[in-house]
Write a protein that binds this DNA or RNA. Structure first.
Lengths: 257, 257
DNA sequence: GGCGCTTGATAACCTAGATCAACGCGCATC
DNA sequence: GATGCGCGTTGATCTAGGTTATCAAGCGCC
């Protein structure tokens, strides 16, 4: 029971046995969402929502209808940690069909209070998210449209590859062009042109919700992609993969010692 | 002793007495930095560095020499939390003269392990930082040069006002135009144009490292500024200001209950 | 004094990307 | 089978902002 949740937190540094036990006894309900559905709204508090299947985006929509996407969630990600101590300042929306597990704020609070090891794992998850945000900011501020698109496609592929959700150079990306535009701070028309360049140059193609990577090396170079950005921040020095599902080969593990 | 550190963490929700005692017994050394100096470099681990005086920026410099600034640090901010569980993925640089207090990774680790309340406060600080980053992303992705500049100036003024470091509509901002450019993802020349518009329109002016707000309402409207973004995330429901220095009137306090 | 160096100011020109406007296609609805 | 709609595609045009260059003011330094 709750294996996914435990595995998810575990990749941020091994949980103590007591925490694992507590987590496995934690009641989780499952919800499913269809493409485009709102998973969590602004102002909501954290239910320790775990994305179990599918892809989701964190986003804000501004007063004038413009939208900015802050980041991507892949299976295993906790998507509402931003609502841990205050109302969520963004919303989470399903990109394609999603399955989400969640507990209750009460149970979450109890776990936080009873198990410091749990809180530490959450803290690491938040730090990892903040790091991904910084990469996103570099894209928005200092990379060309072509480069930041390449970077995003690399992120999408890499993260799913890490989860064994990608193979043979292709993976799911159930996003329409306007989703990419709002993620990258570009217009829909321009995203289309950028995608065409990537396609014509034989780097990658996106069609019918599946992303096909054709030349990883050139794409990664073009997008200035650094896998380390997305590696979980663990407390443990590198001692090889723990759970095959969640151990990309070259993630950097660190220690607080 | 260590009053500043305690007050800093305290604004994210009151610390338990035991944690306060632990913190007040914690050894802190003081360093000073001149304008432009590197306070923390990439890859370093957290020393629980606290900015005691001055302004600093979190930034990355890319391979081609371009720079992206991710955020601002004002007195009371912990500036190296990103290096808590892994090497820091950015650097922190002094904007004007700075004073920084720090402890040692060892002592930090001990505090994390011994005092869950301390870890919770750190976690809230990290969440607050992530929220500020999201606002920054909205600026970079979806606001015009004029609007995002206005937003940044509002942030600078608001945060210092909150700390009683601003008065009569002016505060310190020891940044040159290229600093603003790298913060906002613009070119130096264009920042200059934008500043001239703001000056000509009587909204704000920046000269010799001091920022003068001339029309807060119009500036905030132009920049789409929301003070709540920068309020600390507290565990406590609103029951009035605790420390006068750190209690802006309208911050939103939340509860995990 | 002159000599660098940094920063601000401004002008001339250029381009990446936005905006506007079509059109086509698949697909659901009636 | 018409009608709409979401999405992709493309061209034409516009503009926000980038690039390059120049000049002046301030300032430490020899």
């Amino acid at each position: 029971m709750n294996r996914l949740l435990i595995a998810s937190l575990d990749r941020f540094g091994p949980l103590r046995e007591s925490v694992r036990e507590r987590l496995s006894g934690c009641s989780l309900s499952t919800e499913t969402f269809e493409s485009g559905a709102l998973i969590v709204g602004r102002g909501e508090r954290s239910h320790l929502r775990l994305l179990a299947r599918g892809l989701a985006v964190k986003q804000t929509v501004l007063g004038d209808g413009a939208r900015q996407i802050f980041g991507l969630a892949t299976p295993g990600d906790l998507i509402d940690l931003g609502g841990l101590f205050a109302g969520l300042d963004f919303e989470v929306r399903a990109l394609g069909a999603c399955e989400v597990r969640k507990t209750t704020p009460g149970e979450l609070k109890a776990m936080v209070q009873d198990h410091p090891g749990f809180l530490a794992a959450v803290c690491r998850a938040v730090l990892t998210e903040a790091r991904a945000q910084r990469n996103w900011m570099v894209s928005l501020g200092r990379r060309s449209a072509l480069s930041r698109t390449a970077n995003l496609l690399c992120e999408v592929y890499w993260r799913q590859k890490t989860l064994a959700l990608a193979e043979d150079g292709h993976c799911a990306l159930p996003a329409v062009q306007s989703d990419l535009a709002d993620a990258l701070g570009l217009s829909v028309v321009h995203i289309h042109r950028v995608l065409r360049v990537l396609r014509d140059d034989g780097l990658a193609r996106l069609r019918n919700g599946v992303l096909q990577i054709q030349d990883w090396d050139r794409l990664a170079a073009l997008g200035d992609f650094e896998p380390a950005v997305f590696a979980p921040q663990s407390e443990i020095a590198d001692h090889g993969p723990r759970t095959p599902t969640h151990a990309p080969g070259d993630e950097r593990r660190g220690s607080i010692d």
